[in-house]
């Protein structure tokens, strides 16, 4: 009887010790990213030295994510947090970070990396919401531009080296390999894009400005009258008029926006609707570069 109690007590103490030990020693660096793309890049950079996962599903609008407590568990165990920043996750991430009770990933701590600090921002605007749900720090949809992919990979490698200095050279090598791979792909994509330089597209939400800038494609209009404000018939009618005769080839949007108005716009403006992935895992993509590959090939068609 007594020995059973002792056994139980020992077990409880051991479990408690194991709990204490978690977080102090890790075989792999646990990376949690908000969007799947940074997690994929981190996997490429860190290889088997990191264990990377993401919170947002690739088919989900990253602006509006439920702050599920299960995400708190992921963040609680994280050594590094990667986020898109520029207020993309402002509606849900802060409460999760507080709930995570993890000092390593708080803003200002060593495991916190806001990837928007790695890239040159576009559309930095005066914070005036009468212009819609704008992000004063800049447009946060920057990762579909492969130039930014390179910057993000280097930044992640640097962060991983800070958190896990023992493997710094491996992370540097991982970043170099990733950059070399992306450069090769960029040369391929450039060949596809050069013949269609200056082609005009209309977008649903302004999620494409960085990509279009790199690709040399022109954004001729947006279906949303202002960022975050759902399109209305009168605005779309105006847009059809405005873009008349401009040769708009495609209307592009993510899968989480409704397609009825876009389809109608495409018909009336003589364009074609393309529902394209913007995050790794959407539309059958497996890796970061696949997403760009799909967008390039579809837009260059």
């Amino acid at each position: 009887m007594r020995s059973r109690i002792m056994k139980k007590l020992t077990f409880v103490l051991l479990a408690f010790a194991a709990w204490l030990a978690t977080g102090t020693a890790f075989a792999t660096v646990r990376v949690v990213s908000t969007i799947p793309d940074f997690a994929d890049i981190a996997k490429s950079v860190g290889g088997d030295k990191v264990d990377a996962s993401s919170l947002v599903r690739p088919t989900q609008d990253p602006h509006y994510v439920d702050a599920k407590p299960s995400y708190v568990l992921d963040l609680n165990q994280a050594d590094v947090l990667l986020l898109a920043g520029m207020e993309l996750e402002a509606g849900w991430l802060p409460s999760l970070m507080t709930g995570a009770r993890n000092g390593k990933i708080q803003r200002g701590a060593s495991g916190y990396l806001d990837c928007s600090t790695l890239i040159p921002p576009m559309q930095v605007r005066a914070p005036n919401r009468s212009e819609g749900d704008i992000h004063p720090g800049g447009n946060p949809h920057y990762w579909t531009d492969p130039r930014n992919g390179i910057r993000i990979a280097r930044g992640i490698a640097k962060k991983l080296a800070e958190v896990d200095p023992g493997n710094a050279s491996a992370y540097e090598a991982g970043a170099q390999a990733f950059v070399a791979m992306l450069e090769t792909r960029m040369a391929e994509w450039r060949k596809l894009l050069d013949p269609v330089k200056g082609r005009k597209v209309v977008v649903y939400h302004e999620s494409w400005v960085y990509f279009l800038d790199w690709a040399g494609i022109v954004q001729a209009g947006t279906l949303e009258p202002k960022p975050g404000i759902p399109p209305r018939a009168d605005h779309v009618a105006q847009l059809i008029q405005q873009t008349q005769g401009q040769g708009v080839r495609y209307i592009i949007q993510e899968s989480f926006y409704p397609t009825q108005l876009s389809t109608l716009f495409a018909q009336k403006a003589g364009a074609e609707l393309k529902v394209l992935p913007t995050m790794t895992g959407a539309g059958g993509t497996r890796h970061y570069a696949d997403v760009i590959d799909v967008i390039v090939r579809e837009i260059a068609k």
Binding site: P120, R147, R190
Partner: peptide, 24 residues
């Protein structure tokens, strides 16, 4: 709306400030 659009099209030049990455 036009000014927003215009901003979208002109700010890209900021990217040039940071230097173009290789492959460009």
């Amino acid at each position: 709306m036009l000014s927003v659009l215009a901003a979208a099209l002109t700010i890209p030049s900021l990217a040039a400030l940071a230097g173009e990455p290789p492959g460009q």
